[in-house]
Design a protein around this nucleic acid. Structure first.
Lengths: 153, 153
DNA sequence: CCCAAATACGTGCATATGCATCTATTGCAA
DNA sequence: TTGCAATAGATGCATATGCACGTATTTGGG
């Protein structure tokens, strides 16, 4: 074990933990052809039915333009479709295809193995507590940030 | 507040929280020309003196090839140097330059503001607890993963 | 002494992410 | 009815990340 000085930076601590866990999940998911992040998108779309890009981005705490980028390989591989919302033609609806549903089903076992591997090492109760804490962090509003042009417009 | 179903996936929960906190730190650090991730690298190099690429990657829980990529803009901007280790010419040593030290000093105030903003919203005690938990997660060893070729070689 | 295995990197490729800036569409006040 | 502000995306650019595969160097057994 490397005896490193404890991390003082909240962001650095989050990124280190996320990389560690990404490495585990992506290794186990690799045979399915999906990454952990891609699976997360598909799961949310499956649960929501046909969310708009904005809804999906908000739910995943993703920048909308980043979501657009992330959806490209999923569209290319025929796992999702992105279509214009007839009620509001500014909006786009994201839907899972049959192929996407099948792929998602295929990954369930590998995902469960990753969850079990993590929770065996870390503790199931601690893992549930951590998820709850992280959801809280993800939903924090930090008051007025310095003017991101998007927020002000 | 979006009433979303709680996240079951440990990785998805980590990524959402990390994105949220990245957005805060990067917004506050932006005027300094550094991102939160870059600052994290510089801080560790500053503390370690002249770590090897492998040491630095391990400390940051980064793939070594990813670290190589991440160092490129820092080298381009003259904030770090990467030189051959005379004792073992396979290894490379990463050092901060004077310019890098100055840049790091310049970011301290913005970084402290980001820390304060986060800890005001989340709680200072909770933030310290979370960092400790995340360090634990980052240091987890998950036993035998399915054969990453690097690990076996 | 030699050579193969091991170690420590670098590059390429592809995904992950977010800001700046643009276009298209909607809603509402004048 | 019109026009402007607001909204919802798309693209480009650059950084963040990790695997596959390559080169360079070291180590130690035969």
């Amino acid at each position: 074990m490397t005896t490193t000085e404890p991390t003082r930076c909240n962001l650095t601590a989050l990124r280190k933990a996320t990389r560690r866990v990404s490495q585990l999940y992506d290794a186990l998911l690799a045979p399915s052809g999906l990454r952990g992040t891609q699976r997360g998108i598909l799961v949310h779309v499956a649960r929501s039915g046909a969310p708009t890009m904005s809804e999906l981005a908000a739910a995943l705490v993703l920048d909308r333009t980043a979501l657009n980028h992330n959806l490209k390989p999923l569209q290319r591989d025929g796992l999702v479709t992105v279509t214009v919302d007839k009620d509001d033609r500014r909006s786009r609806l994201v839907r899972l295809t049959k192929r996407g549903e099948a792929r998602l089903a295929e990954t369930r076992t590998a995902w469960q193995q990753a969850q079990e591997r993590f929770e065996t090492a870390f503790g199931a109760k601690q893992a549930a507590d951590l998820r709850q804490t992280l959801e809280l962090v993800a939903s924090l509003e930090f008051g007025e940030a310095p003017v991101p042009s998007r927020a002000l417009k």
